[in-house]
């Protein structure tokens, strides 16, 4: 496998699969007392079904904001965005999103099982079905046996896994993950990355993943979106072609290092533009 085959610029790729997220000339400006802040500027992006897309960039590059715009937690001030052909607001009403935040955001008065069934409860799914789906979701993140524990009785990594189970429980079209492993140590993080990849390969979910770790982005993604700050914009989109059953060992391969190098170059270029 040559590098040419592994690395392709997205512009050269023909669109074949169904687009889940379609973004055209999107921009977002916050009005603050100190004048406007250009959080996102002129963003064009397509996320296809089954893609694992990572957003990487320095702090303030708008990667989290972009994820929040996709999830209808922020409103764009310019351009178009559609999720499965409808607006983000309509997609949210249809419960298209499974969002995993930087912190687990588990409700401390609910057991792990009842935290996982929370979205199902809101969606008015029957009790037996809720319990059944919670069991399945907890099994996917290897947390079966912890149903009756409370969040504060679990370690940080386990809590984050529970929050992933919660996002998986209702079969959302799109899994949005905002630096979910950012607060965890590297060993736990590697383990969870492997688990997440297996999960993605098994469920074939479409995932949008925000990170500031280059190895994490390269290891997990089918598509890496490199962003730069002030104004937040996309400066490179890199497609990778690693096998779906890859392990952490691929991080030693030349292909992996080559892509990591290209990501780093992109980040550096974005940074120097700004100085």
């Amino acid at each position: 496998m040559t590098l040419k085959q592994v690395v392709n610029n997205v512009a050269e790729m023909p669109a074949s699969k169904k687009a889940v997220v379609d973004i055209n000339k999107l921009s977002l400006t916050f009005q603050t007392a100190d004048g406007p802040v250009y959080a996102l500027s002129d963003v064009d992006l397509t996320i296809e079904e089954g893609d694992f897309v990572s957003f990487i960039g320095p702090s303030g590059c708008g990667k989290t904001t972009l994820l929040r715009v996709i999830a209808d937690l922020e409103q764009a001030t310019g351009g178009d965005i559609s999720i499965n052909g409808v607006t983000p607001h309509e997609a949210r009403e249809k419960r298209a999103y499974g969002y995993v935040f930087q912190a687990p955001a588990l409700l401390p008065w609910r057991s792990i099982e009842r935290n996982v069934t929370l979205p199902l409860e809101i969606m008015e799914i029957s009790k037996e079905e809720r319990v059944k789906r919670a069991q399945e979701a907890l099994k996917l993140v290897e947390l079966n046996g912890f149903e009756k524990k409370f969040p504060w009785q679990l370690s940080g990594g386990m809590q984050q896994r529970a929050s992933i189970a919660r996002a998986l429980s209702f079969d959302a079209d799109l899994l949005l993950m905002d630096e979910p492993f950012g607060a965890l140590d590297e060993i736990v993080r590697d383990h969870l990355n492997e688990q997440l990849l297996k999960l993605w390969a098994r469920t074939n979910k479409t995932v949008a993943f925000v990170t500031h770790s280059i190895p994490e982005a390269v290891y997990l993604s089918t598509k890496i979106v490199v962003m730069s700050p002030r104004p937040g914009r996309i400066i490179d989109v890199i497609e990778t072609n690693f096998p779906n059953d890859r392990t952490l060992d691929i991080r030693e391969t030349p292909e992996f290092l080559e892509i990591a190098h290209r990501v780093r170059e992109g980040l550096r270029a974005g940074h120097s533009n700004d100085e």
Binding site: R92, R95, F101
Partner: peptide, 9 residues
């Protein structure tokens, strides 16, 4: 937590 509830509509 409020954002979480919002994502579930």
């Amino acid at each position: 937590e409020k954002d979480l509830m919002a994502t579930y509509a």
